[in-house]
Design a protein around this nucleic acid. Structure first.
Lengths: 149, 149
DNA sequence: GTATCTGCAAACCCTTTGCAATAAG
DNA sequence: CTTATTGCAAAGGGTTTGCAGATAC
């Protein structure tokens, strides 16, 4: 569950695919691993630049599909014209509750998911690969603000 | 629940906002109302052109936020580089199960949602405006195909 | 009459891609 | 040594926007 083992998972994935483990890829992955927050390409890129790491955006864009296929990150939502990702490996699956006003995000577990998954398998015959429950609303603070207006 | 009443809902919405009910808007809305399928801007635009309706894409793009705010349509998912919408007014809320291979979509009800909504309100104090449960997987047909390969 | 709406084309922005040089295995 | 990867800059594609003329109210 430490950083070493996640890098190793990715190395194995690359090996299996005949792809290469480069310093650039290692730097990007380490930067993603640093936090469990959601991220987007531009923010990640700027964060790395500020640290003096010179990585091109193209390399980040090219790495993302690999990380998704390796099961390390996931698309979480599309907002403000670009995709947002989340580093998921080793973390319990969770859902997102977003405030439509201040964009704050709360995470929560869906206790019903195992039942739902079973139901979907039985009813539709699908092999489920992932699920995403996204709830939107007004957080308490923004609800207050609206009242005052 | 018929077409007339949905148009009226939209007219009221426009009136309240000081906006105008134009023939172009009416044509676009009627076209969206024709089917309950998911749609995207380009498909809608081409469908209208084939019928000889001359509407600019800009007008469709400008109308969409209004329809969402009026509660008539909803973003359902972002795929293949563009957003997909769904006409929701008067329809029971439902979730989507998508095949990652053939892109087929099944709809289903989430029987646990009322419980979840209650839980989220109590735990986080949010006023919930909408939710989206999106499940991905392999449909039975695509599962068969993969076995053979 | 006034403010909104339209179509058009250009601008925008995120993402992808072609290329020549570089580097991993 | 072969093939994948890099950075760059240009291209791509969906969406937004500025504008001038038209139109709803």
């Amino acid at each position: 569950m430490n950083q070493e083992s996640e890098l190793q998972i990715f190395r194995k994935y690359l090996q299996k695919k005949g792809l290469r483990y480069t310093p650039e890829r290692e730097q990007i992955i380490k930067e993603i691993f640093l936090t469990h927050d959601h991220f987007d390409v531009d923010t990640l890129y700027l964060r790395m630049r500020q640290k003096g790491l010179q990585i091109s955006k193209a390399s980040i864009y090219r790495l993302i599909p690999l990380l998704i296929e390796a099961g390390l990150i996931e698309e979480v939502f599309f907002e403000d014209g670009h995709m947002h990702y989340e580093y998921i490996y080793g973390h319990e699956p969770h859902c997102h509750l977003r405030c439509i006003s201040c964009k704050r995000i709360e995470e929560f577990r869906d206790p019903h998911w195992p039942d739902m998954e079973k139901m979907l398998k039985e009813k539709f015959g699908y092999e489920i690969t992932n699920y995403k429950l996204e709830v939107q609303g007004l957080c308490p603070a923004c609800k207050e603000k609206q009242k005052k207006e």
